[in-house]
Amino acid sequence: MHFQYSIEGGDFSRAGNASSQLKKLLKQLNVDSQLIKRIVVALYEGEVNIVAHAHRGTIDVDIEPDKVFIRLSDEGPGIPDIKQAMKEGYSTASQKVREMGFGAGMGLPNMLKNADKLNIESEPGKGTIVELTTLLR
C-alpha cells in the first residue's frame, strides 16, 4: 500500500495531519499498538521538522507485510552537518517553533530511537530526505 501526503512549511495548524491519518490506517490494519506508536512518533517528529524548517515537503509511506517505509523529502535549507544535527540538544529552530513545544534538538535523535533504520541525505540550500524503516515483527 502506498500513500502520499503534502506538507506546507510553516503551517503549524496542520502539522501532524499525515501522522494522524497513518495512525488510523495502521490501527485498521491491526498493527501492534506499540509498533504504531513508534512509527507515528517518528513520522510526527519528521512532519514537525518539515513544517518548522522547510518550504514544503512530501511524505511517502509504503506499508508492506513485514515493514513500514517512510520517505520524507523537503525543499528547504538542508542540513549542513548531519552529525551535529543528530546530537541531542542541537537545534536551529525559531522562537515560533519553540513556542509550539518543539525545537529542543530532540527530533532527529528521537526518530532514530523509534525507527529500525534511519537514513538522512541532505544538500544545503536544496533540501533534505529522511528515510525511516520500521519492521513489523
Partner: peptide, 15 residues
C-alpha cells in the same frame, strides 16, 4: 501549561 493544537497532536501520537 502548553495549550495549542500540537499539544493534542502529541498526545494523540503518544497514546
Amino acid at each position: 501549561g502548553l495549550s495549542n493544537v500540537q499539544t493534542i497532536r502529541t498526545a494523540e501520537m503518544a497514546d
